[in-house]
Design a protein around this nucleic acid. Sequence first.
RNA 1: GGCCCGUUGGUCAAGCGGUUAAGACACCUCCCUUUCACGGAGGUAACGGGGGUUCGAUUCCCCCACGGGUCACCA
Length: 491
Amino acid sequence: MSDKVRVRYAPSPTGHLHIGNARTAIFNYLFARHHGGEFIIRIEDTDVKRNVAGGEESQLKYLKWLGVDWDESVDKVGQYGPYRQTERLDIYREYWRQLIDNGQAYRCYCTEEELEKEREEQSARGETPRYSGKCRRLSDADRARLEAEGRVASVRFRVPEGKTYAFDDMVKGEISFKSEEFGDFVIVKKDGIPTYNYAVALDDHLMAITHVLRGEDHITNTPRQLMVYEAHGWEPPIFGHMTLIVNESRKKLSKRDESIIQFIEQYDNLGYSSEALFNFITLLGWSPEGEEEIFTRERLIEIFDANRLSKSPAVFDTVKLNWINQHYLKGLPVEELAKLCFPHLKQAERLAAEPSEKELAWATALVTLYRDHLRYGAEIVPLSDLFFREEVVLEDDGREVLAEESVPAVLSAFARQLEAAGEANFTEENIKAAIKAVQKETGAKGKGLFMPIRVALTGQTHGPDLNGSIWLLGYGRVLKRLEDAAAGKLA
RNA sequence: GGCCCGUUGGUCAAGCGGUUAAGACACCUCCCUUUCACGGAGGUAACGGGGGUUCGAUUCCCCCACGGGUCACCA
């Protein structure tokens, strides 16, 4: 490839970073980095009404969170700026005026109501709704009259007749459309701002974009953009249309769909690892060559191959995401894992907002105890529930365990051992030793030894490491529960 | 409805004319473990249908079915 690869991610600042957009951004990023090219972020804010305050910042913030960086954008101005489309209106104007001057575009005075009516009539007749071309041949006099009526013009592109627009899609292969399928489309709205299809083509050319990697929902936009390139005498970039991410019903992820968590911010808030999410997103509609699935960002840059982009849509599988995330969490130093968990403990009021050293140590031990169980940070709260309940909730199989004849002896022996050691010596080491001593004293061992203790203290027959759990429960609580259980007071 | 795209186990997917049709997640079994989890070893499970082309089709072509996308002065 002689030209340097330049690709872009072009979000509209209409909301937070969505999982589908994040994937588009990530694949463009990987493609650029793999080829030693440049990655640009351009803000497509031409729909002024839909722009959301803070949308742009949020998009960039979470892209950064994911570990994506870029070479040019609103915050990193290069030689192709500005990078916000509404700041490029003067640039666009020159081009669309050219198109009007040479007859490749024309002013249209139709009102929204008129167009709506036209579309309805076409649909009623079973036709594909398409602009009729009513304003194609307006004379100067017609225009003067219409404008005198107070009508404001939009600008429409004059779609050539009898042409085929074909392109070799990077993922789908040859795709072609006949120009008859398209009505003259608006390139400049009444508010003077170009539409997406025009601005995008102009900017991709002006910013020297070599490859346009985007979602499959843009396939039918491509011929329109090809027409724009042609009208201006430009060489189009190479297009690649990635499959959509779909929900369990195999529908395109709609932003209102609540069956799946869709915004990157939410994953951050739930205590997901950004590396894990990056890794997971990468596996959505793309697959590496070997059998590995866990990759660092650097490794992905190395192995990313756009030829391996999938042709069929990918269902977003939360279960697999959780598996990957759990895998990453296991590899994290405890302090890092704690950072993902603590906010949730605090929110649940199980950890002070400004914890003391002792509280911090306790909470860290809690996180350590659940290290291998956690799929994401927020899970620490439901998982560790038993440490925050005053009363032991006895489960049915636990009841059976406590019904054993030898149980009271074991429990009271354990309590005596702990008391003999004293609260000051209440450490995991000594707890372990105490249990050993109980074994000697009562002759109970294995399940017969550990199960009664576990059930008496937690109410459950399963749970995290016992010694750690006992320590976390704390001296006082442990003794109280042992007494209650030994006395058969557990309901 | 027109146009475009797609269809390998429950899910993600490898495959690119000849394979016992990978692998991962999930599920099940066993091992490990004082329990659960982790880890380890196994197991169940797939080429939408019909025609061609070919000595031979999951793979190439056509038709059908199904699914999706798109038909805005939204991007």
